[in-house]
Nucleic acid binder design. Sequence first.
DNA 1: CGTTCTGATTGACTCGAGTAGATCCCGCTG
DNA 2: CAGCGGGATCTACTCGAGTCAATCAGAACG
Lengths: 339, 339
Amino acid sequence: MPDLSASLPAAVTRKDVARLAGVSTAVVSYVVNGGPKNVAPATQEKVRQAIATLGYRPNVTARALKMGSSRILGMVVPKITSPFFAKLAQAVEKAAEDEGYAMLLGDSRDSLTVERHHLSNFVDRQVDGVFLCSVLNHRPEVGELERRGIRTVLLNFSEYPLEIDAIGPEFVGSSRRAVEHLASHGHRDIALVQGLVTGNTLDGREVGWREALKGLGASEGRIFRCTFDRPGGYDAGQRFLALADRPTAVFVTSDEQAVGFLKALHEAGLRVPEDVAVMSFDGSEEAEFSWPPLSTVRQPVKQMAEAGVRAIIGSGRDEAPRTQVFDCELVLRASCGCQ
Amino acid sequence: MPDLSASLPAAVTRKDVARLAGVSTAVVSYVVNGGPKNVAPATQEKVRQAIATLGYRPNVTARALKMGSSRILGMVVPKITSPFFAKLAQAVEKAAEDEGYAMLLGDSRDSLTVERHHLSNFVDRQVDGVFLCSVLNHRPEVGELERRGIRTVLLNFSEYPLEIDAIGPEFVGSSRRAVEHLASHGHRDIALVQGLVTGNTLDGREVGWREALKGLGASEGRIFRCTFDRPGGYDAGQRFLALADRPTAVFVTSDEQAVGFLKALHEAGLRVPEDVAVMSFDGSEEAEFSWPPLSTVRQPVKQMAEAGVRAIIGSGRDEAPRTQVFDCELVLRASCGCQ
DNA sequence: CGTTCTGATTGACTCGAGTAGATCCCGCTG
DNA sequence: CAGCGGGATCTACTCGAGTCAATCAGAACG
């Protein structure tokens, strides 16, 4: 049927519906929200009819003002172009959507200043909760959020318990298992390509790698520190190649970095896994389609996102924040020597 | 200095500020917004002081209700995990942020139903504008948005002028140049890996490819249709490999697909570019770090995002919508035979 | 037939900020 | 000194929806 409504922003309000249905505005609300008072079936029908003919849609802004809840969640990521954070953002958005929430995305572009800006902006916009993937790997500054009573969940963090909710993979143990797997292929000199973390704590992946080496009785491994992205991994690869006595295997703290690292190896004509075996962390699609396909530690992104949404919208105001740690799965492909 | 404010959501309102400053609420508004009426310098100072001591932040929701503008833009992408859309989303978010707007992200996960859901949701949330990367490649259903006066910009679309704003790369000419470049390396049998488009129009990349082949007087090329992602490209690669008389070069409609295609070639032991030369479209970081590095058509993402924001917030209500087409740049790397 | 009870409905106030229109105060002019 | 102009300020209404207290209509009962 042809659309006959006006071309200007036709603002159909509760009042219009009430008038057409011949009831008061309160009744319209009761029908729309199914409460808090009952409405006689016949009246309900009249109201529904009016809503349908007018094409009434409640004004979410007005509701938000009245209820003090915007039904919007905010998410801050260091870089949405990182395959892992993209996957995480997708999962969070889906989980939020399933609960009727929309998601504001803030990309901090690896800058703490921008991260702070986004958080402060989210406060102003009265989001109901925030997912924070901080550029810091220690407790970020979320005082303002807490003060306003905005439930905040730290994602990709699980190092130690904090006074706020945190969700992350089991960094230490998963990394240890990854390194041990490399060792199972006969490697003893296993290096670490470690992303730079701006914080005073040790990254769990580094801890796991150390533990594994110690457990193997292997010599102390070498570390290549670089940024958490493809160019960083490439740069680490260059430094790796410059070594006279190269390690035979490498554990890389993210798929992205591993892809850059692989590029450096390819350029030098080294074969993977024959000359250098590689394992990485995250489990993004990127790892599956690199060459050779990367063995990696897969984070249960979907579960983490759902747990995050639950922590924000499903928990009472006074419920104590907690840190939830998720087990990861070793995905074995060609780069470590499997297959 | 220590924070002494209450731990409960301290809702400091305009009223509190007015009381402390000893003025009316209207004056507070005038000071905060710099108008529409003047306030005596001395009074301004008092108000500013009160705002500072109370830590007052205007309630954006209330303002949105009154003004009918949320200062939020919505963006819908088919898949945020696609490197190209991630880059685009990042650029749009940045451009929006620079203008004081926040961005709601909706991931439609390649589903038209979900896309519609997001759009309808954005309408309810009274966003001030929408960026739409539709899963359709023809005019999507944005009637509702238009009816509510929400300015909408179609991104990644430039095939033909529409009654709504559209922004996209110069698909046809850029693709023609890419294919001609492959030809310049001596190739005559150049295949196309074409993403599936749900619409009745021809994809500009396909048109450009055809034009180039015709211009070269080459025989009609072969087409491998597949989904617009890595697995799709891989699948196309499998079909390509099954051919008895394989083309010597391939033009792929996205970096993502090209990465999947490369994987198939690698598995079969074919060398790139010696056995098969490859060029793709988009210009994401993914292309730079694949092996071999992919020659690609780089879209000017930043400029397109900025133009998009301008189209939404900088244009008058009655300004006629227009299609803006952006020139792309050929980035030549190893996969085509350069270097 | 009057009273009481109960469920349906309504009027009116609220959320917090924008702003028009009314008011106030001061200094200047005739 | 009355009258006027004009800037500063305040009062009060508005945006659209949620919901409580009050009201109303009708049924049930004595």
